[in-house]
Structures are given as structure tokens and as C-alpha cells.
């Protein structure tokens, strides 16, 4: 039996010592040092390969074999240890990076729409689904379009219904309602049918208060065709109201008077805040007055370019600010043009 050469013993010792040392290594830097010392070019193990010629020829294969084994063992151990060290390092890093997640976030600046724009868009969208398109018209209007063509001649008692702002010059007013737009929209379409919504700013000489403004938006809905009935008006407006407020909301119509419609009605919606029991929003009545409406008056149809013996139509008008006030329980109509940032910011 050939005696174990010295060098093999030494290699085995180096291996044991190195593995022992490796087990204690906890970080990447020490790991690299260990690699340099144990497996580097000038390390004891590696020098066995370069000095192999110093050993007797017959022992060289054995020495080479053992040295290779040692090298492989150490390399494998290094890889394993490296995995462990990396994992530990990640865990440590995660630990060190822990945040107080309850600290407030950094908010980017955000823009917002004015609440009137928001409610108008909602109304546009609902009517668009029913084939109604938006027509807009001017603010400073002639007496002819604001009154005369709408069946409101001068000194008609109905003129009391609007406290009008008159503009310097003859027969010019700030439009008191969006109804002049009816004539424009009908004349554009007649004799083809019309389905239009007419939003716009209106003006009335009022004492400004929490309930009334001198300037306010109005939105009218008109449909004209050969087969349009009061029933269609009910169906269309009820459909709108159910989409706007609540799918089960109850409505009622009660007679009213507008010079440009006949029959005329007011539509009330059962108060969606209290469900009709009576609350501060509906002032105890259980009903919310939501819009005026009616079948288009023959004179208005005629002025719009439709033969009233063949065509019929309906019109309805509502106040977007009022709807916004009801939807969001806004207490004071002056907030809309006041534009206090503390009000506007709530409409995110």
C-alpha cells in the first residue's frame, strides 16, 4: 500500500478549515475574501495544481484528483454559502427599509371640474342615449326670440313670470330662459324631426339670496315630430329622472302654465333624501319640484317651422344648479358663482 502523500493530508486539512471558516461568513465582502484566500490563484489549493511537477510522477494523478475534489467541494460550498448570505442580506435590507405606512402620501396636484359642468355632462349623456343633441344659443337675445316667437306678446300677463334684465337699445334683453333656443333648433331641423337639449345661462332680476340668483343655468329638452304625445313626454322625462336620481323614484305631474306649452305641467320627484316622508331638503312636502314641461304650443311649433296640425312636440326645462343642489345637498345657490375653493374642492 502506498502511503498517503503529505500533500493530500494537507489538502484535506485545508478543506476542513476552509469549510469551517465559510460557515461563519455572513456578508458578501467576507465571502469574496474567503474566495481569494482559499480558491484564488495563489491559494494553497490552487498552487497544488501549478506545483504538481514537484511531486513524484506516479503520485501526480492521485494528487491531481484529490486537489480537484477539494476544489470542487469548496466551490460548491461557496455557492451554497453565497445563496444564504444573499438571502440574509435581502432580508436585512427589507428589514432596514421598513416604512411607517400610515404617514400621509404625497399627492400630485389635481384639477377638478366646476360642479355645474359635471351635472351638465351627466344630463347630456343621459339624453344623448335617447338621441337628443346639444344646441346652444346666445345670452344677449332679442325680445323677438326671447318672448314674441314663444307666444309671449308684449304686455301679456305671462311676462310677469320673468323679471327681465333689459339691455340698452330697443328690444334687447338678457335671455330669461333657454327657450329662444327652441326656435333656433327647430328652424335648423324642420321639417325633419327634432330632439335637442338646450343648455345655457339665463338671467333674471332677482334679489340674490341662498335660493335665487340673477344668473343661472337652465337646460331645456325638446322633441318634435309627427307622433309625439304627452305620454312620450312622461316616458322620456321619467326615464331621465330615474337615471339621474334613482331607478325606483316616483314622480308626479301637476298642471301649470307656460305660454309656450299647452298642456303645461310641473314635474315633482318624490324626495330621494327622505323617501317622501318629509325632510329639510323637500321642506316637509315629500316632493321636489324638478322641472316644468308641456306639449309645445301650436304658435311655437309654427314659429319653429312646423305645421302644428301635423307635428307635435314636447318641451321641458330644468335648473342644473338646482339638480346639483338636490344631489349634493348644497344649501346656498350663491356657492356656484362664489367659487370658494373650499366648495369647489369637494367636487372631486
Amino acid at each position: 500500500m502506498i502511503e498517503k502523500p503529505m500533500i493530500i493530508q494537507e489538502l484535506e486539512e485545508i478543506q476542513d478549515t476552509a469549510l469551517e471558516a465559510l460557515k461563519k461568513i455572513e456578508n458578501e465582502e467576507a465571502l469574496q475574501n474567503w474566495r481569494r484566500d482559499i480558491l484564488g490563484r495563489s491559494s494553497a489549493v490552487m498552487s497544488v495544481f501549478s506545483n504538481i511537477s514537484q511531486h513524484p510522477k506516479e503520485l501526480r494523478p492521485l494528487i491531481g484528483q484529490v486537489a480537484n475534489q477539494v476544489k470542487q467541494t469548496l466551490e460548491t460550498a461557496l455557492l451554497d454559502r453565497s445563496e444564504i448570505v444573499k438571502e440574509a442580506a435581502i432580508l436585512q435590507k427589507l428589514q432596514d427599509e421598513k416604512l411607517d405606512v400610515t404617514l400621509p402620501g404625497r399627492r400630485p396636484v389635481t384639477g377638478r371640474y366646476h360642479p355645474v359642468s359635471t351635472v351638465l355632462r351627466r344630463i347630456y349623456a343621459i339624453f344623448a342615449d335617447m338621441g337628443f343633441q346639444v344646441h346652444r344659443s346666445r345670452d344677449v337675445e332679442s325680445d323677438l326670440f326671447n318672448f314674441e316667437l314663444l307666444n309671449i306678446p308684449a304686455y301679456h300677463p305671462a311676462r310677469d313670470m320673468w323679471d327681465t334684465f333689459y339691455v340698452e337699445g330697443e328690444g334687447v334683453v338678457l335671455k330669461t330662459h333657454t327657450s329662444p333656443g327652441q326656435i333656433y333648433a327647430m328652424r335648423k331641423n324642420a321639417p325633419k324631426p327634432t330632439r335637442a337639449i338646450l343648455p345655457g345661462m339665463c338671467y333674471r332680476y332677482e334679489q340674490i339670496s341662498a335660493r335665487s340668483e340673477i344668473q343661472f343655468n337652465q337646460l331645456e329638452v325638446i322633441a318634435v315630430g309627427k307622433n309625439i304625445t304627452f305620454g312620450d313626454m312622461k316616458g322620456t322625462l321619467n326615464g331621465f329622472v330615474r337615471r339621474l336620481f334613482d331607478k325606483d323614484v316616483r314622480t308626479r305631474l301637476r298642471p301649470s302654465y307656460f305660454p309656450f306649452t299647452e298642456p303645461s305641467a310641473e314635474m315633482d320627484v318624490e324626495c330621494f333624501v327622505c323617501g317622501g316622508k318629509g325632510c329639510s331638503v323637500c321642506k316637509g312636502s315629500g316632493w321636489l319640484e324638478i322641472m316644468g314641461c308641456g306639449m309645445m304650443h301650436p304658435v311655437v311649433l309654427q314659429n319653429g317651422g312646423y305645421d302644428p296640425t301635423i307635428y307635435s312636440g314636447f318641451a321641458a326645462g330644468m335648473g342644473p344648479e338646482r339638480i346639483s343642489m338636490l344631489l349634493h345637498k348644497i344649501e346656498d345657490i350663491r356657492y356656484f358663482w362664489g367659487n370658494d375653493i373650499r366648495f369647489l374642492e369637494q367636487f372631486r
Partner: peptide
């Protein structure tokens, strides 16, 4: 009655 608009779409 309450009906749906059945007239021609403009």
C-alpha cells in the same frame, strides 16, 4: 299613459 318615444330619430 307613459310611453317611450317611438317617433323617427332625427
Amino acid at each position: 299613459p307613459e310611453t317611450d318615444l317611438a317617433d323617427d330619430l332625427p
